[in-house]
Design a protein around this nucleic acid. Structure first.
Lengths: 110, 110
DNA sequence: TAATTCAATCGTAAAATTACGATTAAACAA
DNA sequence: TTGTTTAATCGTAATTTTACGATTGAATTA
């Protein structure tokens, strides 16, 4: 998604797409589920859990961090990742509203 | 997403990612919003509305159809697209459950 | 200090996505 | 029948994504 075509879409449309993209790969879905379910959130544990190379997981974590869904805090030589609850809620509200469009459906053709 | 790595992820994780991917581009977000809001759902009108080439829109519509979120019905020389409400609901439930994980959060580190 | 551990980054290759113009095929109109 | 309209498909280029091994850098341990 280039910056140059942002005029074609609203901020909201772009933001929905960016959030959705974060869930658009099963590895990132699994990482997020793991962060919710597990007591541990250490990067090394995530690597073992998901079953992809360490550098690949690092890339996925970077993306999730960039969009704001997770945070990482350094703890010695390891890094602990966890859900950013504030942004998770924002995401839920934005996507939730988008999903609930079917309740105010105006269209009647087809 | 190759088929070969499906063993690394559950059906559910893969399905969540596939649905999310459908929303992972602002053009498809806009198309879906248009289909909900507008009385018209003719392909040509969508092309005008979004502001991308006809062939590009056709590709996006194909993806949305493939994942099952929309249906297309031929009407003369034009094609009328609309939301597949049954699958939209399935998607809402699946993604909604995924989003609501924060309510049963077990993790407490960080 | 030297060796070790952990995760980020680099470099790179393969695959997927996005976009467009051109062409095709089907339905309709003259 | 011939021409027109509409949307799908084809071919292709540019960009992005995904994945991996190798390297780096920071913190810890011996």
């Amino acid at each position: 998604m280039e910056i140059t075509k942002e005029n074609k879409f609203t901020e909201e449309q772009t933001q929905i797409a960016l959030f959705a993209k974060a869930f658009g790969h099963p590895a990132r879905v699994k990482i997020l589920q793991y962060l919710f379910e597990s007591k541990s959130c250490v990067c090394g544990d995530i690597v073992e859990e998901i079953g992809l190379a360490q550098s690949t997981i690092s890339q996925h974590l970077k993306e999730l961090k960039k969009i704001g869904l997770i945070q990482g805090s350094v703890d010695g030589t390891s890094v602990c990742y966890c859900i950013d609850n504030e942004n998770w809620t924002k995401m839920k509200n934005l996507l939730g509203e988008f999903f609930d469009q079917d309740h105010e459906m105006k269209s009647d053709c087809c």
